[in-house]
């Protein structure tokens, strides 16, 4: 009967509408977290199957956040097994993390050649995961602070401080540290 076959395909159509549009975002996040094409593949495939099984819990208006959260969780499981040290912020949430290796050879120009792109990606990949993910979610996915807070399960204030510290670490690693914004501190 055509009615029953249509019903049987409904979950697939729902998956196609709700989840598949965000496959690139999920892959990009998984790729930056695992830093490996093959592992990002596995993580996203696993996350997609989970998403399909629990599709009725997905709200249409928050499908991207929901699928990204499942993907992030799958990536974290993978990281906990394979590279637990990357999940740790040395010095704790408030302390100063270890410096990334600075790269003095970075050219001044903003236009990046292949070599500079590679160095930029190494610098991002060198960030501890809690900083790396907020930088990627903000700079590449352009998620709001609130969306990032819900996705990563930390308060907005923590998102803001992680973002600031991630950016400062990257600026230093790229050989162009951000000057202090504080007026007159050094002049006083």
């Amino acid at each position: 009967m055509s009615d029953s076959s249509r019903d049987a395909a409904a979950p697939q159509r729902r998956f196609e509408t709700l989840v598949m549009p965000h496959l690139d975002a999920a892959y990009n996040l998984a790729r930056w977290l695992t830093r490996s094409d093959a592992d990002a593949d596995d993580v996203v495939q696993e996350a997609s199957l989970k998403a399909f099984r629990f599709l009725d819990q997905c709200r249409a208006e928050d499908a991207r956040g929901w699928f990204l959260a499942i993907t992030r969780n799958a990536a974290y499981s993978w990281l906990r097994n394979k590279r637990p040290q990357e999940l740790v912020i040395s010095g704790g949430e408030e302390g100063e993390p270890a410096e990334l290796a600075a790269d003095p050879a970075t050219p001044e120009s903003l236009a990046l050649d292949g070599e500079a792109t590679r160095r930029l990606e190494e610098a991002i990949g060198g960030l501890p995961v809690p900083f790396r993910e907020v930088v990627i979610l903000r700079e590449q996915e352009e998620l709001s602070y609130r969306e990032i807070a819900e996705l990563t399960g930390v308060p907005i204030g923590t998102v803001m401080s992680r973002l600031a510290r991630g950016r400062a670490l990257l600026a230093r690693a790229l050989g162009r540290p951000l000057p202090s914004p504080q007026r007159g501190r050094q002049d006083a």
């Binding site: 496959l23 690139d24 999920a26 892959y27 990009n28 790729r31 930056w32 990002a40 996203v44 903003l110 990046l112 792109t117 930029l120 990606e121 991002i124 930088v135 700079e139 590449q140 990257l170």
Partner: peptide, 9 residues
């Protein structure tokens, strides 16, 4: 940072 490659699936 925006010039870092966006990895599409």
């Amino acid at each position: 940072l925006k010039q870092a490659r966006y990895r599409r699936a």
